[in-house]
Design a protein around this nucleic acid. Structure first.
Lengths: 338, 338
DNA sequence: TTGACGAATGTTAGCGCAATCATTTATGAC
DNA sequence: GTCATAAATGATTGCGCTAACATTCGTCAA
């Protein structure tokens, strides 16, 4: 009957009675120790430990109208990119007594909206959401929300509240320029899971190649299906059957790039001479791959860290001066491009 | 002043007043629709929508003593293994109105204990924790907990409550046997982040090689540092300097295996003839690597799914017959071993 | 028509805590 | 000693909801 065990709960009132003070004094000793005399505070602390009192966050939330839960809504839990951001979030909130409620919108605006409604109904202390492409309804929910909100992964005009990210368009454009600078003349773009960020990267690729007079629609291979290494293999195969003369591939992420690399090796392509490969995100493996992988470095850990710090500051009433942080990117040239 | 906006909250009482019934009737219409007459239920539903009433989960939790939050405590958010499990959890939970509070214990028993205390104080509906090696204090907290608990990733004697996983010892032993069966006579074991599961895999490797008279301490390379592809590269380098005659490597996970593969390619090893490589977990990339990677398949998605289903059933009062589920494993032979 | 019984709805109380305002107790200037 | 002032502590109230018990209504057999 583990579900029905009496918990023998110790309340504030119990502590107060044991110490011989009123409940509110114990409450204050916990939350504003300065406002309670030193000796009393000690007696209270001692009794709390003796009785094993643990504050009830639910009751506290009911009366204050706020929980100490920070909601984080991301489109995927398996994507390494978000995992890195999350890790940073945890590294920071570990020191605090905030908890993280994680929502997975699975790249669906509808599911995202449902999650935002659900989270907001629970009175979160703050919210972190990925991207800038919320539905109108979601957006207005967040604008009206009575808690701070940070959008991450991207930068854009009119943040809902605060924002930390970088320009996917610019990053992809810089990577494309890199390929062209390295002498590749028939660059291709390969992408899966065409979410809004991927779309903007494609746009960066498109415009840079157009400007340089090297654009060719047939060298753009995309799919809505989820991204994976295997998908990189498949899409590269498709590219080779459609545009076998492509001499470089800008991949929408490193997983795809790894798949392209494997498949290129299977087909005995000489990388980087015959085929240049550029990934996106610069996951840890890029540096040690064989050959090492050129990629666009993004500052995911810093993104998570900045986001959660801004959020916590805002929760505590100290809004940051800059509501919009652009962390930039960096094209890391390695041996998969000449 | 987005923090102080009046929310103009609509309560149960408001709905009740508008409909002309008592609050409890509205409450019932929401939670036990059968107990309210059809016509009244319709009027109530209509008014709820009209007024935009949203139940307050905090108030509900205060009076019922339970939230609808399920706590999940894992040691790492960047490890793909846990991500796959999490994804399954979300796939199931999406249909329900449970939320997931995710805790990251960072492979520390102390942090895990802190998290369990924190989570339990918040009256979760249920708890999922990774592994079977909780501290004594954590364990007794969980045993005393007034909610169902599922341990995942491993199986072991005396579950705290319920358990879904597999035997890491047996899986590693089977992989070792595979290497030996394939004719490798000087197998090595490479591992990072020696958590309890890694220890048990090492034990499996050790005992199988001992039984077969092929054990050699110098071919065991481990480190406490976190696992990564780069670490695979490094540890393989170490192995080669200490035991250059090793003819196969059982890696503690696929990331390490990928690192070993890259470094082996750099050193012009012929895989699988000169060097066999076996990973662990059979991440998606294994099947499409070049050469494709032998690995031990583990059923991570099913693990998450079973765990969350068992948990939700238990929350609803229907305990599963079998409290302990062993999902097994499968050695997948590919071209990285002959 | 009566009464009995189940279905439908209502009344009361309180979950544990903190906001608000009220009171008491030190502290120190003169 | 007196008074003003600050510091420390307390009483009351209610957050929004549901458990437990209480009442009313409708239906149908005799």
């Amino acid at each position: 009957m583990r579900n029905t065990r009496k918990s023998g709960k110790v309340t504030l009132a119990d502590v107060a009675r044991a110490v011989g003070v009123s409940a509110i004094t114990v409450s204050r000793a916990l939350r504003e120790p300065d406002k309670v005399s030193a000796t009393l505070r000690q007696r209270i602390d001692h009794t709390i430990r003796e009785l094993g009192y643990v504050p009830d966050p639910v009751a506290r939330a009911l009366v204050t109208g706020r929980t100490n839960i920070i909601g984080v809504i991301i489109p995927s839990v398996t994507n390494n990119v978000f995992a890195d951001v999350l890790r940073a979030v945890y590294d920071v909130i570990r020191m605090t007594d905030f908890g993280i409620q994680l929502g997975n919108s699975r790249y669906s605006l509808l599911e995202e909206e449902k999650l935002v409604r659900l989270f907001l109904s629970q009175k979160p202390a703050g919210l972190i959401v990925a991207g800038v492409d919320q539905s109108e309804a979601t957006r207005s929910l967040l604008v009206e929300a009575s808690c701070p909100v940070v959008q991450i992964m991207e930068v854009g005009d009119d943040p809902i509240d605060m924002m930390v990210g970088f320009s996917h368009y610019e990053a992809a454009r810089a990577a494309t320029r890199h390929l062209i600078d390295r002498g590749y003349r028939r660059p291709a773009f390969v992408a899966a899971r065409m979410d809004p960020r991927s779309q903007r990267r494609l746009q960066g690729f498109r415009e840079e190649t157009e400007v340089q007079g090297l654009f060719d629609e047939t060298r753009i291979i995309t799919t809505q299906r989820p991204s994976s290494v295997a998908m990189g293999v498949e899409l590269f195969g498709e590219l080779m059957s459609v545009a076998p003369d492509a001499d470089a591939v800008l991949c929408n992420n490193d997983d795809l790039a790894l798949g392209v690399l494997f498949e290129a090796q299977r087909r005995r392509f000489r990388v980087p001479d015959q085929l240049g490969i550029c990934g996106f995100n610069d996951l840890e493996f890029c540096a040690v791959a064989e050959p090492s992988m050129t990629s666009v470095r993004t500052f995911r850990h810093e993104m998570g860290e900045r986001a959660i710090r801004m959020l916590v500051s805002a929760i505590e009433g100290k809004r940051p001066e800059e509501a919009l942080v652009d962390l930039g990117y960096e094209v890391v040239h390695r041996r998969s491009t000449r």
